[in-house]
C-alpha cells in the first residue's frame, strides 16, 4: 500500500515547526500506526536524515506513552483506541495521513511528535493520592466494598494518562482526566476520607494549567481506556459538594 505521511517536524520548543511530506510505498494493512512511523524512520535513517521523534513504550495500549494526532484526531480514526492499536487498515491506498503531536496549550512541544504532559501529573500531585503510609492500612477484607462499586471504581481508574482527552478538546481541558481520578477515589474506602479536600485542590490545579470544559464530549470518544463521559458530571458534582460541605471528606 502507498501512503503519503505529512508529519510535524520541530527541532525544539524554541523554533517553529512545519509539516513535511514523506511517501511510504510498502505500508501493510496489519501495521499499527506506530509501526508505520518505525517504517518511515527506517527509511529516513537510510537516507541519512534525522528520524521523527515520537514516544511509545508498551505498544499494547496500557502505558499511555504514545500519543499523536492523526488527521486531527487524537490517536487515530478508530474511537477509544490508542495509537499503538490503530492500524493502517483504516486507510486506503494512496491516502494522505497527517500526523501531528497532541495539540493543547497545556502540552508544550518538546520535539517533533513529543509533547510535555507533566501538567497532568501535577494535577495528581495536587491531591489525586491517598494519605495512607506503608504498613498502616487496615485489613482489606474487613472493609466491605460492593462488587458493583469495585467495578465502577475500575471503570474510572482505567485511565492510562495519555492526554488524548486534552488534545481532543477544543479548549484543551483536562476534565475527563481529573473527573476520572475524583470518581475513582471517591468510590474507595480510604479515598473517601479526603474527598472534599481532593476535589478542591485537584480542580484548582487543573484550572491553573488547562482550559475549561467545552461541553461537547469529544474527549470520551478519544479516550483509549473508555473512561465514561460521566466523569465530567462527577467533577462538577464533586466541586459543588466540596464547596457546600466545606469538609475534608
Amino acid at each position: 500500500m502507498r501512503l503519503i505521511l505529512e508529519v510535524w517536524r520541530q527541532e525544539s520548543p524554541r523554533v517553529p515547526g512545519r509539516l513535511e511530506a514523506y511517501e511510504i510505498t510498502d505500508a501493510r494493512e496489519e501495521m499499527s500506526l506506530l509501526e508505520l512511523l518505525d517504517r518511515l524512520n527506517h527509511q529516513l535513517v537510510e537516507e541519512n536524515q534525522e528520524p521523527v521523534a515520537f514516544e511509545s513504550d508498551c505498544r499494547e495500549g496500557i502505558c499511555g506513552t504514545c500519543g499523536i494526532d492523526v488527521n486531527g484526531v487524537p490517536h487515530g480514526p478508530e474511537n477509544n483506541v490508542p495509537a499503538c492499536g490503530q492500524h493502517v487498515r483504516s486507510f486506503a491506498d494512496g491516502d494522505t495521513v497527517r500526523i501531528e503531536p497532541f495539540r493543547a496549550a497545556g502540552f508544550p512541544i518538546i520535539r517533533d511528535l513529543i509533547v510535555d504532559r507533566t501538567g497532568l501529573d501535577r494535577i495528581i500531585q495536587a491531591g489525586g493520592t491517598v494519605a495512607v503510609d506503608a504498613g498502616t492500612a487496615t485489613d482489606a477484607d474487613t472493609l466491605l466494598v460492593t462488587h458493583e462499586q469495585a467495578e465502577a471504581a475500575l471503570d474510572f481508574a482505567a485511565c492510562i494518562g495519555c492526554g488524548a482527552c486534552v488534545s481532543a478538546c477544543p479548549n484543551g481541558a483536562a476534565y475527563l482526566f481529573t473527573g476520572a481520578k475524583l470518581q475513582h477515589l471517591a468510590l474507595m474506602p480510604h479515598g473517601k476520607m479526603e474527598r472534599g479536600k481532593r476535589a478542591r485542590s485537584m480542580i484548582a490545579q487543573m484550572e491553573h494549567e488547562f482550559g475549561p470544559c467545552s461541553q461537547i464530549g469529544e474527549c470520551a470518544l478519544a479516550c483509549p481506556a473508555g473512561v465514561p463521559l460521566s466523569a465530567i458530571a462527577t467533577l462538577n458534582k464533586e466541586r459543588l459538594r466540596a464547596l457546600l460541605r466545606r469538609k475534608d471528606n
Binding site: A140, D141, L144, V145, T146, H184, H190
Partner: peptide, 22 residues
C-alpha cells in the same frame, strides 16, 4: 499478606465478590 491491604488503601480497586470481600 499485608501488601493487598496497603495497595487497596492507596487506590487499587481489587475485584470484589458479591458479599463485599476481596
Amino acid at each position: 499478606v499485608r501488601v493487598i491491604d496497603h495497595m487497596q488503601a492507596i487506590g487499587a480497586p481489587f475485584a470484589r465478590e458479591y458479599g463485599g470481600q476481596l
